[in-house]
Protein backbone atom coordinates (compact mmCIF):
# COMPACT_ATOMS: atom_id res chain seq x y z
CA UNK A 1 0.00 0.00 0.00
CA UNK A 2 1.41 3.40 -0.97
CA UNK A 3 1.17 6.50 1.22
CA UNK A 4 -1.41 7.96 -1.13
CA UNK A 5 -3.53 4.77 -0.95
CA UNK A 6 -3.31 4.81 2.85
CA UNK A 7 -4.63 8.37 3.07
CA UNK A 8 -7.51 7.41 0.78
CA UNK A 9 -8.31 4.18 2.62
CA UNK A 10 -11.41 3.55 4.75
CA UNK A 11 -9.19 2.78 7.76
CA UNK A 12 -7.71 6.28 7.66
CA UNK A 13 -11.16 7.86 7.31
CA UNK A 14 -12.41 5.84 10.28
CA UNK A 15 -9.49 6.88 12.50
CA UNK A 16 -9.83 10.55 11.53
CA UNK A 17 -13.61 10.56 12.06
CA UNK A 18 -13.33 8.94 15.48
CA UNK A 19 -10.51 11.27 16.55
CA UNK A 20 -12.42 14.32 15.32
CA UNK A 21 -15.57 13.33 17.21
CA UNK A 22 -13.54 12.56 20.35
CA UNK A 23 -11.75 15.91 20.14
CA UNK A 24 -14.95 17.92 19.62
CA UNK A 25 -16.72 16.10 22.46
CA UNK A 26 -13.70 16.48 24.76
CA UNK A 27 -13.41 20.23 24.13
CA UNK A 28 -17.17 20.68 24.59
CA UNK A 29 -17.16 18.85 27.94
CA UNK A 30 -14.07 20.71 29.17
CA UNK A 31 -15.68 24.08 28.42
CA UNK A 32 -18.98 23.03 29.98
CA UNK A 33 -17.22 21.76 33.11
CA UNK A 34 -15.74 25.22 33.55
CA UNK A 35 -19.25 26.72 33.62
CA UNK A 36 -21.06 23.98 35.53
CA UNK A 37 -18.52 22.86 38.12
CA UNK A 38 -20.02 22.66 41.61
CA UNK A 39 -17.46 24.24 43.93
CA UNK A 40 -16.69 23.05 47.45
CA UNK A 41 -18.26 26.21 48.87
CA UNK A 42 -21.46 25.64 46.89
CA UNK A 43 -21.62 22.04 48.12
CA UNK A 44 -21.25 23.25 51.73
CA UNK A 45 -24.03 25.83 51.31
CA UNK A 46 -26.32 23.19 49.81
CA UNK A 47 -25.56 20.80 52.65
CA UNK A 48 -26.24 23.47 55.28
CA UNK A 49 -29.57 24.43 53.72
CA UNK A 50 -30.55 20.75 53.39
CA UNK A 51 -29.62 19.90 56.98
CA UNK A 52 -30.94 23.05 58.69
CA UNK A 53 -33.73 24.10 56.30
CA UNK A 54 -34.96 27.63 56.96
CA UNK A 55 -33.21 27.95 60.34
CA UNK A 56 -30.74 30.85 60.29
CA UNK A 57 -27.30 29.50 61.07
CA UNK A 58 -23.71 30.68 60.94
CA UNK A 59 -21.02 28.36 59.63
CA UNK A 60 -17.51 28.46 61.10
CA UNK A 61 -14.27 26.98 59.83
CA UNK A 62 -10.67 27.44 60.88
CA UNK A 63 -8.20 29.86 59.32
CA UNK A 64 -4.53 29.08 58.69
CA UNK A 65 -3.65 30.07 62.28
CA UNK A 66 -6.27 27.78 63.74
CA UNK A 67 -8.74 30.53 64.70
CA UNK A 68 -12.46 30.15 64.06
CA UNK A 69 -13.61 32.18 61.04
CA UNK A 70 -17.10 32.67 59.70
CA UNK A 71 -17.79 31.25 56.25
CA UNK A 72 -20.14 33.61 54.42
CA UNK A 73 -20.72 35.30 51.07
CA UNK A 74 -17.43 37.26 51.38
CA UNK A 75 -15.39 34.37 52.73
CA UNK A 76 -16.69 31.54 50.56
CA UNK A 77 -13.66 29.27 50.56
CA UNK A 78 -14.56 26.79 53.27
CA UNK A 79 -11.83 25.93 55.73
CA UNK A 80 -12.61 22.74 57.55
CA UNK A 81 -11.83 22.05 61.21
CA UNK A 82 -9.75 19.16 59.90
CA UNK A 83 -6.29 19.42 58.41
CA UNK A 84 -6.73 16.09 56.61
CA UNK A 85 -9.29 13.34 56.20
CA UNK A 86 -9.63 10.91 59.11
CA UNK A 87 -9.76 7.22 58.25
CA UNK A 88 -11.89 5.26 60.71
CA UNK A 89 -12.68 1.54 60.65
CA UNK A 90 -15.95 1.77 58.69
CA UNK A 91 -15.97 5.37 57.54
CA UNK A 92 -13.87 8.32 56.41
CA UNK A 93 -14.49 11.75 57.94
CA UNK A 94 -13.84 14.28 55.19
CA UNK A 95 -14.75 17.67 56.68
CA UNK A 96 -16.09 19.19 59.87
CA UNK A 97 -17.60 22.64 60.43
CA UNK A 98 -19.09 24.37 63.45
CA UNK A 99 -22.65 25.65 63.22
CA UNK A 100 -24.14 28.23 65.58
CA UNK A 101 -27.74 29.42 65.70
CA UNK A 102 -29.09 32.95 65.77
CA UNK A 103 -32.10 32.06 67.89
CA UNK A 104 -30.72 29.57 70.40
CA UNK A 105 -27.70 28.73 72.54
CA UNK A 106 -25.25 25.92 71.84
CA UNK A 107 -23.78 24.69 68.60
CA UNK A 108 -23.57 21.70 66.27
CA UNK A 109 -20.71 20.11 64.43
CA UNK A 110 -21.58 19.42 60.80
CA UNK A 111 -19.52 16.56 59.38
CA UNK A 112 -19.15 15.20 55.89
CA UNK A 113 -18.55 11.49 56.31
CA UNK A 114 -18.22 8.66 53.80
CA UNK A 115 -19.67 5.42 55.13
CA UNK A 116 -18.18 2.16 53.87
CA UNK A 117 -19.88 -1.23 53.48
CA UNK A 118 -22.52 -0.23 50.95
CA UNK A 119 -23.84 -2.36 48.10
CA UNK A 120 -21.03 -4.11 46.20
CA UNK A 121 -18.42 -2.61 48.54
CA UNK A 122 -19.47 0.91 47.56
CA UNK A 123 -19.79 3.97 49.78
CA UNK A 124 -22.33 6.64 50.71
CA UNK A 125 -21.28 10.16 51.65
CA UNK A 126 -23.51 11.85 54.20
CA UNK A 127 -23.74 15.16 56.02
CA UNK A 128 -24.32 14.51 59.71
CA UNK A 129 -25.10 17.21 62.25
CA UNK A 130 -23.94 16.32 65.75
CA UNK A 131 -25.54 18.38 68.54
CA UNK A 132 -23.27 19.42 71.39
CA UNK A 133 -24.14 20.33 74.98
CA UNK A 134 -23.87 23.93 76.21
CA UNK A 135 -20.14 23.84 77.05
CA UNK A 136 -19.26 21.78 73.98
CA UNK A 137 -17.73 18.87 75.85
CA UNK A 138 -20.27 16.14 75.14
CA UNK A 139 -22.53 14.98 72.35
CA UNK A 140 -26.14 15.91 73.12
CA UNK A 141 -27.74 14.16 70.15
CA UNK A 142 -27.88 13.66 66.43
CA UNK A 143 -29.55 16.32 64.29
CA UNK A 144 -30.46 15.86 60.65
CA UNK A 145 -28.66 13.42 58.38
CA UNK A 146 -28.69 13.96 54.62
CA UNK A 147 -27.39 11.69 51.90
CA UNK A 148 -25.07 13.14 49.27
CA UNK A 149 -22.86 11.42 46.73
CA UNK A 150 -22.45 7.67 46.52
CA UNK A 151 -20.37 5.08 44.76
CA UNK A 152 -22.23 2.20 43.14
CA UNK A 153 -25.42 2.55 45.20
CA UNK A 154 -28.07 2.03 42.53
CA UNK A 155 -30.90 1.95 45.06
CA UNK A 156 -29.92 5.00 47.07
CA UNK A 157 -33.23 6.58 46.02
CA UNK A 158 -35.00 4.05 48.24
CA UNK A 159 -33.49 5.47 51.43
CA UNK A 160 -36.49 6.75 53.36
CA UNK A 161 -36.54 10.06 55.18
CA UNK A 162 -38.04 8.28 58.21
CA UNK A 163 -34.78 6.32 58.56
CA UNK A 164 -32.66 9.48 58.33
CA UNK A 165 -34.77 11.35 60.89
CA UNK A 166 -34.78 8.32 63.22
CA UNK A 167 -31.16 8.79 64.35
CA UNK A 168 -31.99 11.86 66.43
CA UNK A 169 -35.15 10.30 67.85
CA UNK A 170 -33.37 7.20 69.10
CA UNK A 171 -30.12 8.77 70.19
CA UNK A 172 -28.55 7.55 73.42
CA UNK A 173 -25.09 7.85 74.93
CA UNK A 174 -22.77 5.24 73.44
CA UNK A 175 -25.32 4.04 70.86
CA UNK A 176 -24.07 2.30 67.71
CA UNK A 177 -26.64 2.40 64.92
CA UNK A 178 -27.12 -0.76 62.85
CA UNK A 179 -29.56 -2.21 60.35
CA UNK A 180 -30.44 -4.95 62.87
CA UNK A 181 -31.81 -2.32 65.24
CA UNK A 182 -34.21 -1.00 62.64
CA UNK A 183 -32.03 1.61 60.94
CA UNK A 184 -32.72 0.20 57.50
CA UNK A 185 -34.72 1.14 54.39
CA UNK A 186 -36.51 -1.62 52.48
CA UNK A 187 -34.74 -2.41 49.21
CA UNK A 188 -31.54 -0.61 50.15
CA UNK A 189 -30.23 -2.48 53.17
CA UNK A 190 -26.59 -2.36 52.04
CA UNK A 191 -26.77 1.40 51.45
CA UNK A 192 -28.43 1.67 54.89
CA UNK A 193 -25.38 -0.07 56.39
CA UNK A 194 -23.08 2.51 54.78
CA UNK A 195 -25.22 5.37 56.13
CA UNK A 196 -25.20 3.83 59.63
CA UNK A 197 -21.41 3.56 59.41
CA UNK A 198 -21.21 7.23 58.41
CA UNK A 199 -23.34 8.35 61.38
CA UNK A 200 -21.42 6.10 63.81
CA UNK A 201 -18.14 7.43 62.37
CA UNK A 202 -19.27 11.04 62.82
CA UNK A 203 -20.09 10.44 66.49
CA UNK A 204 -16.82 8.59 67.10
CA UNK A 205 -14.83 11.38 65.48
CA UNK A 206 -16.56 14.17 67.45
CA UNK A 207 -16.07 12.21 70.71
CA UNK A 208 -12.34 11.91 69.97
CA UNK A 209 -12.15 15.55 68.84
CA UNK A 210 -13.67 17.05 72.00
CA UNK A 211 -11.46 14.72 74.04
CA UNK A 212 -8.46 16.37 72.42
CA UNK A 213 -7.95 14.03 69.46
CA UNK A 214 -7.18 14.92 65.83
CA UNK A 215 -7.09 18.73 65.69
Amino acid sequence: MTVKQFFRSTAFKCVITLLAILLICGVFLTVMYGFLEVSKGEKLQRAVSKVYGKTTVTVYGLDSEGKEVEINAENTDPKSFMSKQAELESSTVIDMYKITFDDKEGFDYLLQVTGKGGYGGGTVTCWVSVKMNADGTQIAGIGNVTVGANVGQSFIGKIQSSMLSGYGEKYGDGIVYSTEDGFVSTGASSSSTAINNAVNGAMQFVRDYVAGGDK
Binding site: L36, A149, Q153, I156
Partner: peptide
Amino acid sequence: TFARMLLEKFVPDLYDSLGGF
Protein backbone atom coordinates in the same frame (compact mmCIF):
# COMPACT_ATOMS: atom_id res chain seq x y z
CA THR B 1 -21.98 13.57 30.92
CA PHE B 2 -23.34 17.01 30.01
CA ALA B 3 -26.76 16.09 31.42
CA ARG B 4 -25.09 14.88 34.64
CA MET B 5 -23.27 18.21 34.98
CA LEU B 6 -26.52 20.14 34.47
CA LEU B 7 -28.44 18.03 36.97
CA GLU B 8 -25.69 18.22 39.59
CA LYS B 9 -25.56 21.99 39.22
CA PHE B 10 -29.27 22.82 39.02
CA VAL B 11 -31.24 19.79 40.33
CA PRO B 12 -28.94 18.18 42.94
CA ASP B 13 -31.76 16.26 44.67
CA LEU B 14 -32.72 14.50 41.46
CA TYR B 15 -29.04 13.92 40.67
CA ASP B 16 -28.59 12.18 44.02
CA SER B 17 -31.77 10.12 43.76
CA LEU B 18 -30.95 8.79 40.28
CA GLY B 19 -27.59 7.51 41.56
CA GLY B 20 -25.71 5.20 39.19
CA PHE B 21 -28.62 4.91 36.76
